[in-house]
Each structure stands twice: as structure tokens, then as C-alpha cells.
């Protein structure tokens, strides 16, 4: 395995952490996910095709791990509640501001979305991918990205503004 791939993985880490942060709602959990992602990527480095995008491949690993994780939480009946899991941005208290409250509200609301909607939000709104890139990353058609993303954002907006039932809002319009 060349050092080249490692160097490029290191370059990807900040973005991958941000992506994982949006999914998990906590930097600690994000780092756990990223660490597992790197471990799996390196263990399967021979499956990566040089010449293809390393970032897409890493993100695919991360999102598969995230799906597995949500599934196993479900199987074990764990309640995902990240309200208390969010770190305080600065320990001196100065950062306990609106943006922190917003972060907490948004992270909580994202965590209550179905996993496929969490991912499309994380790819497009957090990581800044185009719809086309998100479709490639998720292996779904462009139209599905758009319908999923619109549903997710409508649900998110309702949860953030009216305390609506995000799960019901997210399901509105049926499954793709």
C-alpha cells in the first residue's frame, strides 16, 4: 500500500469528520465512525481502484458503517438521544450561544430522520456535494436524491420551527 493513499486519506479527514459529525451529532461519535472508516478502508485498500475517487470510496464505507450502526441500535432497542451528547464548543461558556443551541436542535432533528434522509442531508447540505455527486455517492438516481432531500428538509424545517413530528413529516409522501 503506497503512502500516497495514506496522505490522501489524511487530507480527507477534516471533511470526513464534518460529515460524520452531522450524522452522529457528536464529535466523539464522529471520530469513532471516522476511525472505523479508516480501519476498514486500509484493510480493504486493494478494493479501491486507483484512478477513481478516494473520497467517494471512503464516504461509501462511512455511510455503510453508519447504516450498520443504526441498524444494530435498532435491534438492541437503544434509544438514540443525542441531546446530552453534544459537546459544548468552548468550555469557558462563551460559546453557549444561539449557534450552539441551533447546532443542538439541528443535530437532534437530523438524528430523528430516517437513515437514508440523514445521508442525503449530510452529503448535500453539510459536505456540499451537488445532487449528481450525491446520487453517485449513494448509488441512487438523481430524482431519488431530490425527493429524499426535499422530504428531509421539509421535515427538518418543521421540527425546527414548529416542533412538528419529524418522523411523520419525513415519511410524508411515501417511501422512494
Amino acid at each position: 500500500m503506497s503512502n500516497d493513499i495514506r496522505d490522501r486519506m489524511v487530507e480527507l479527514l477534516p471533511r470526513l469528520r464534518r460529515f460524520a459529525y452531522a450524522l452522529t451529532g457528536s464529535l466523539d461519535k464522529a471520530d469513532d465512525l471516522v476511525q472505523d472508516t479508516c480501519a476498514r478502508a486500509l484493510a480493504n485498500a486493494d478494493q479501491w481502484q486507483p484512478g477513481t475517487r478516494l473520497d467517494s470510496w471512503m464516504y461509501r464505507i462511512a455511510q455503510n458503517l453508519w447504516f450498520d450502526r443504526l441498524r444494530s441500535q435498532k435491534v438492541r432497542g437503544e434509544v438514540v438521544d443525542i441531546d446530552g451528547a453534544l459537546e459544548i464548543a468552548g468550555s469557558d461558556g462563551r460559546d453557549v450561544t444561539d449557534s450552539r443551541l441551533t447546532l443542538q436542535a439541528v443535530a437532534t432533528s437530523i438524528s430523528r430522520l430516517p437513515a437514508d434522509q440523514q445521508l442525503v442531508i449530510a452529503h448535500v447540505c453539510i459536505d456540499g456535494l451537488s445532487y449528481k455527486e450525491a446520487a453517485d455517492a449513494l448509488g441512487i438516481p438523481l430524482g431519488t436524491v431530490m425527493s429524499r432531500l426535499a422530504r428531509a428538509r421539509t421535515a427538518l424545517h418543521e421540527a425546527l420551527t414548529g416542533g412538528g413530528d419529524i418522523a411523520a413529516a419525513a415519511a410524508k409522501g411515501g417511501t422512494p
Binding site: R18, A30, T102, L103, A107, C125, I126, G128
Partner: peptide, 10 residues
């Protein structure tokens, strides 16, 4: 995409 600024600590 403005949401990303909330999560940009990393």
C-alpha cells in the same frame, strides 16, 4: 448548505 457552518468545527 448553510447548515454546514454548524458542523464545521472539524
Amino acid at each position: 448548505r448553510g447548515l454546514s457552518s454548524l458542523f464545521d468545527q472539524p
